[in-house]
Design a protein around this nucleic acid. Structure first.
Length: 564
RNA sequence: GCCCCCGUAGCUCAGUGGCAGAGCAUCGGACUUCUAAUCCGUUGGUCGCAGGUUCAAGUCCUGCCGGGGGUGCCA
């Protein structure tokens, strides 16, 4: 990447200047080349002279030599800066910045590489083939996914896509909480709804699920099994209805997530941890390490041994059922030890922050470095309709489902909007506003830029013109070069997004890129039958821009339409 | 009480220690288009408050104020 190469060049110039005796000797600090936010300060800039002025002058004082100002240090560094094909020139700017300018000719040549290599041109190898799992959504399978889950899906899937394109081997997993009290209540509610369909005078459990969707599920069961299940014994009911209900919900989840272009590689059953012996193994390990003890009729896990905290966690509740902590620990034992993931990312809503703070540390009990478990927390989505908040409550049966929002605003717009906020920021999502504004939504602006490039290429092909590399040097307009610069920024955006597990940088960059492209489009007419050479070069640029737009859109899980 | 997150333009939000940004909205222009779902220009901010660190702070540290969340034998 250009940025790191520039950092190396500047480090070299400092070493050279020290070797020549133009600057005194001191340890070379970490050198940071950044993108200036304003124009006219180079494509990149570096504050090294300001950063080292104190070291320089301290060393000079020890030699009883005179002081140097940051600007003078900059001049010395500039003189020793090695040449590079991508570097046009470097300048000193007050109070002591080195501004670096990319070579226009080199920039123009990149269009050919981008067009040929497509998304690969932008791929960075951060992961080196490391096996990483992204576990996300994982909502309780007791009903349709509410819209808050859509944010989880958008973030988790974008992270997976970012990692896949950064050299990681990624698995997407959905953790299915298919055991415990919630599941039991779900099954019993379903059973009652089923009975009611046959006119039986029964009530759903007091703590049951009142939502109308439960009746739909019961109707599905009735359609398939008729009245044959009415004869089940009291012991058979919970298990059978859990099984039937779970299948319906999982099918529905898979379908709804597919609407958002999200697909999981694996649906992992919580129950399987107990069936396959993982839980028993974990229990034995902890017991043998004296990490478990009994109190108040429950079995406790000595979390305080592994965390900076004096609080322990209930492992087996006094009713004999394992608590959620037990399942979580066994689950992550399975991820690391049984399945061998080197890195695990869980995407959780902020209301699990306490667990998020504690779970990684407990991995030490199995000799697993807590750093291998990253929990990405995101804040909730507040849904509004016409400025009024819509309460999401599964309990009251009043929920806004992901499906209905997707049907209203579309998957692309929903994904874009959900991704465009930083994970920690709460989102106010006004459905009416989202629908009303959809025509002037940035989503369409970005997709439109892509569709336009496709259109130009089609039109050119009809006229017998194709992108060609022969005259790329003709790409010298400010708008052309600005577009190239913006495209080359993509790897930096990806690295930043991966480093911070912050996919919200993607939509902002995409909008920026589309804007730069549209500006080019407005200023530089591409197809010009009088100038075949320039047309071919610009077509190459258009193709490169189209590739880049499509690549960013795919990182966000959005479609890149050929026409709109 | 203690812990975490948020507070930046009218609105919605970006901002990796380097001269405060985008979209929308406002106002003024441009439609015989390679797709006007567009373009050009304009208005708009003591970055919640107060200290501190630094050559340099929206950004790092401390303390406040306001909003949200967490602190279960729920998950």
């Amino acid at each position: 990447m250009i940025q790191t190469q520039l950092e190396k060049l500047i480090a070299q110039s400092l070493k050279r200047a020290q070797k020549k005796g133009e600057l005194p000797k001191f340890p070379v600090p970490a050198i940071a080349v950044t993108r200036p936010r304003r124009q006219g300060q180079g494509d990149y800039s570096c504050a090294l002279p300001l950063q080292i002025v104190r070291d320089v002058n301290n060393a000079l004082k020890a030699q009883q030599a005179g002081k140097l100002a940051p600007m003078q240090i900059g001049e010395i560094l500039l003189k020793r800066l090695p040449a590079a094909e991508f570097l046009d020139r470097a300048e000193i700017a007050k109070p002591g910045f080195i501004n670096l300018y990319l070579s226009p000719a080199w920039l123009a040549r990149q269009t050919a590489l981008i067009s040929q290599q497509g998304g690969e041109y932008y791929q960075v190898d951060l992961g080196e083939g490391k096996k990483v799992q992204v576990e996300f959504v994982s909502a309780n399978p007791t009903g349709p996914l509410h819209f808050g889950g859509a944010r989880n899906a958008a973030i988790g899937d974008a992270l997976a896509r970012l990692l896949e394109n950064s050299g990681y081997l990624v698995q997407r997993e959905y953790y299915v909480n298919d055991r415990g009290t919630q599941m039991r209540t779900f099954a019993m509610t379903l059973w009652r709804r089923y009975q009611q369909l046959f006119g039986m005078d029964v009530e759903i459990p007091a703590d049951g699920y009142p939502g109308a969707y439960m009746i739909e599920y019961a109707e599905k069961i009735k359609a398939e099994h008729g009245d044959s299940l009415l004869s089940l014994t009291e012991e058979e009911v919970p298990e059978r209805f859990q099984e039937l209900g779970l299948k319906i919900v999982l099918d529905e989840l898979e379908h709804d997530l597919a609407m958002m272009n999200v697909h999981f590689d694996n649906w992992f059953s919580e129950q399987s941890l107990y069936d396959n012996g993982d839980f028993a193994k974990v229990y034995a390990i902890l017991r043998d390490q004296d990490d478990l003890y009994e109190k108040d009729g429950a079995v406790w896990f000595r979390a305080s041994k592994y965390l900076k905290s004096d609080r322990d966690e209930v492992f087996i509740r006094s009713n004999g059922e394992p608590g959620y902590f037990a399942s979580d620990i066994a689950y992550h034992y399975n991820k690391f030890i049984v399945r061998g993931f080197e890195w695990v990312i869980d995407v959780w809503a902020v209301d699990h922050q306490n667990q998020a703070k504690r779970l990684p540390g407990t991995m030490r009990a199995f000799g697993i470095d807590p750093q291998r478990l990253t929990i990405v927390l995101y804040d909730l989505v507040t849904l509004k309709r016409g400025g009024k908040e819509v309460k999401i409550s599964k309990r009251a049966g009043e929920i806004v489902t992901m499906r209905e929002v997707l049907e209203e605003v579309g998957a692309d717009a929903a994904r874009y909007f959900l991704l465009s906020h930083s994970n920690e920021a709460r989102i106010d999502f006004d459905i009416d506003l989202a629908v009303a504004q959809s025509s002037e939504n940035p989503v369409y602006y970005i997709q439109y830029a892509h569709a336009r490039s496709a259109s130009i290429l089609r039109k050119a092909a009809d006229a017998g013109l194709k992108p060609a590399t022969d005259h790329l040097a003709l790409l010298t307009c400010p708008e052309e070069l600005a577009l190239l610069r913006k495209m080359l920024q993509l790897p930096e955006v990806v690295i930043n997004a991966v480093d911070h597990l912050a996919p919200h940088h993607l939509p902002h960059y995409a909008l920026d890129l589309a804007k730069t492209y549209t500006n080019f489009y407005g200023h530089c007419r591409v197809i010009d039958m009088e100038r075949k050479d320039l047309t071919e070069a610009r077509l190459m640029l258009v193709q490169a821009a189209k590739t880049t737009l499509a690549y960013v859109l795919s990182l966000m899980g959005m479609t890149a339409p050929e026409q709109m």
